[in-house]
Nucleic acid binder design. Structure first.
Lengths: 115, 115
DNA sequence: TGCGCAAATCGCCATATAGTGATATAGATA
DNA sequence: TATCTATATCACTATATGGCGATTTGCGCA
């Protein structure tokens, strides 16, 4: 028999897995990085396009992209002077979807309280 | 027609939604809190059980549970002197699953490089 | 070789927070 | 009331990091 598909039926994660998960969540924990990822969702963007789109300073955009990249959430490709950044791991999109679903459920529940 | 189910087809998240998502990810970004959540996955636990299971100091367990609770990821119920904590939002479990899937895919890809 | 532009890096400061020991609070029990 | 236990909170330190201006690096091109 296959294990039940509930939390109780799952194997606990190893310490190393938990550490890596914490790293991923930590990478996504900053609004500026989520903004950058959101701008990358429709497709690749250069650093200057991201600066323009987010209003962040160039130094900061580069820094946050570096953090996203060292955590393998984005990748880049050079084109002359330009660097094209893109989302490297579809996990990012899924994670945001899961969070948003929960937020929507919460909103519905909150609204229900006052009906 | 319904929108495509790709990142490009999704509405961007509002600033407020992004902020809330950052909060959730931030709450999950700490190893100690992930450890606590993992201990809660099979079912409710008291603070002292969590202290015992994780090896963390009692003050720190209470503190981190407080953070999890203020972000609505866990809830608690009093039973005499004891507080029983439990996971309040199944999102937590889903998020960990999504991250782990990605880690597994990465591991497979890494292994493939050296075959 | 030198110039100009895009991006990355450096040094710095300000802030946030994990973890700690000590203490306070709240419920049970006598 | 006094006291014991479980949990929460306080005050503090140490560390990590976001954001910034200044500078450097890497590439294309004259």
């Amino acid at each position: 028999m296959s294990p039940k598909s509930t939390a109780a039926g799952k194997q606990p994660l190893s310490h190393v897995q938990l550490e890596r998960a914490a790293d991923v969540f930590s990478t996504l924990s900053e609004l500026s990085r989520l903004q950058l990822l959101q701008e990358l969702m429709p497709g690749p963007r250069t650093v200057s396009e991201l600066v323009e789109a987010t209003g962040m300073k160039q130094a900061n955009v580069s820094k946050q992209l570096g953090i996203l990249r060292s955590n393998r959430l984005v990748e880049r490709e050079r084109d002359g002077n330009f660097m094209h950044y893109s989302i490297a791991d579809p996990m990012v999109v899924h994670l945001c979807e899961v969070v948003c679903e929960s937020l929507r459920r919460q909103a519905v529940r909150e609204a229900g309280k006052y009906v």
